[in-house]
């Protein structure tokens, strides 16, 4: 038997694990669908019943509903990432999960693809479809059109030099944050979400403090730094650190997972 990675066995693993997790996944995604519908409906009651008109961009109600959905989506993504390796710490499931005849790399890749890619993509698709549906029902401009228009008009709060590089750098840096939660899911034995959040806070505290002090004491340097970070060089720096931390947290997660003993 092939003791290394096998795509055929990986396929079987995905099939088996998805079948076992089908209900939980559907409940999560279904819950998000319901939340999206409720948020859009509640925030736009006035428009629905004809008491108000938010204009083509939907007004405050529509922006607030998008904000709530985005917040919920972020929470679900990170919370879900924190549970990526939950079964390996569960009293009833851990032994079977460890003893399933698949390579460690296959089990790790499954957790990675499901929680880092499949679930966030599914949530984004649900949120966008929900937005398009409500935009169509309420007569607003949907989020895709809105973003497209902003992109073309180069509307941005911090800088007018929004580039592909800037966007990619921020996406990669978000990804590194997500992988940090994935690493937390395997490093901590219990309360993974809260402990990862705490670790995140502790690790980023020095940067926060330094930035605050810089703004208070050396305002001009801080302003230069801000304009540097928003420029091309800053984007490259964000991209570089994003790639570095993504790989670092991935390595930490893999190292811990590959040597993880049964804990309960």
């Amino acid at each position: 038997m092939n003791d290394r990675f096998s795509w055929k066995r990986f396929g079987r693993l995905v099939r088996a694990e998805l079948r076992g997790e089908r209900r939980t996944l559907l409940l999560k995604l279904g819950g998000f669908v319901v939340f999206c519908m409720v948020m859009y409906m509640l925030w736009n009651v006035g428009v629905i019943f004809g008491f108000g008109d938010g204009g083509s961009d939907g007004g405050v109600g529509y922006v607030a509903s998008r904000f709530c959905v985005a917040m919920a989506m972020g929470f679900i993504v990170y919370f879900n990432l924190s549970g990526s390796f939950k079964r390996y710490f569960s009293r009833g499931k851990a032994a079977a999960a460890f003893m399933l005849p698949a390579a460690k790399s296959e089990k790790f890749l499954y957790a990675l693809l499901l929680n880092l890619l499949a679930v966030p993509i599914a949530l984004i698709v649900i949120a966008v479809l929900n937005d398009m549906l409500w935009a169509c029902l309420l007569g607003f401009e949907n989020v895709c059109n809105l973003l497209g228009r902003w992109w073309n008009e180069k509307v941005i709060l911090i800088t007018d030099r929004i580039t592909g590089l800037f966007l990619i750098a921020n996406i990669v840096s978000t990804l590194s944050g997500m992988v940090f939660f994935l690493a937390g899911a395997v490093v901590f034995r219990r309360n993974q979400f809260l402990l990862t959040l705490l670790a995140n806070f502790v690790l980023s505290l020095p940067v926060f403090v330094y930035t605050q002090v810089l703004f208070l004491t050396h305002w001009e340097s801080a302003r230069d730094w801000l304009s540097w970070i928003a420029g091309d060089a800053g984007s490259w720096a964000i991209l570089g650190s994003g790639v570095f931390f993504t790989l670092l947290w991935l390595y930490v997660a893999w190292r811990r997972f590959s040597t993880l003993p049964l804990t309960r």
């Binding site: 038997m1 003791d3 066995r9 499931k93 032994a95 079977a96």
Partner: peptide, 14 residues
């Protein structure tokens, strides 16, 4: 996997 496919552990709690 070659080892795991040749061993089955029935735990006390599952």
């Amino acid at each position: 996997p070659g080892f795991l496919s040749r061993v089955f552990l029935l735990p006390e709690e599952f």
